[in-house]
Amino acid sequence: MIVSLIATGLFLFVLFVAAVRKFTFLGLKISVMLFAAAGIYFVWNPDQMTRLAQLVGVGRGADLITYATTVILFLTVVGAIIRERRSGDVLTLLVRRLAIQQARFPERPKAGPDSRG
């Protein structure tokens, strides 16, 4: 019972955050909200999860949850890697701009005062 309540609280939190937060894609917002709503439903109707599992050819509801969690985790990690790469690209552009602006020239004079940026 306590576990069910905690799980419900977590799904409600996800539902609330998804409802309030802005998403880049509306489809993602709807998917997260549906996922949270389904979570609440299945927490209180575990038999339905088992029926759903059997429907898609997986033995038990618990197994289906494991598989679904694995897939979601994988997609989340891939998404995080892609986001990290994009931030890295932006950082590279900034670092490059600074490096060129502040380039140092060996001795010489003709470089002028702006040779250091």
């Binding site: 890295g88 670092v95 490059r96 490096a99 502040q102 380039a103 140092r104 020239f105």
Partner: peptide, 17 residues
């Protein structure tokens, strides 16, 4: 001439700079 990357960005990034 020396252009300095403030943080390490890798050889590809450095060549493009």
């Amino acid at each position: 001439c020396v252009a300095t990357h403030l943080v390490n960005r890798g050889q590809g990034a450095a060549l493009q700079t």
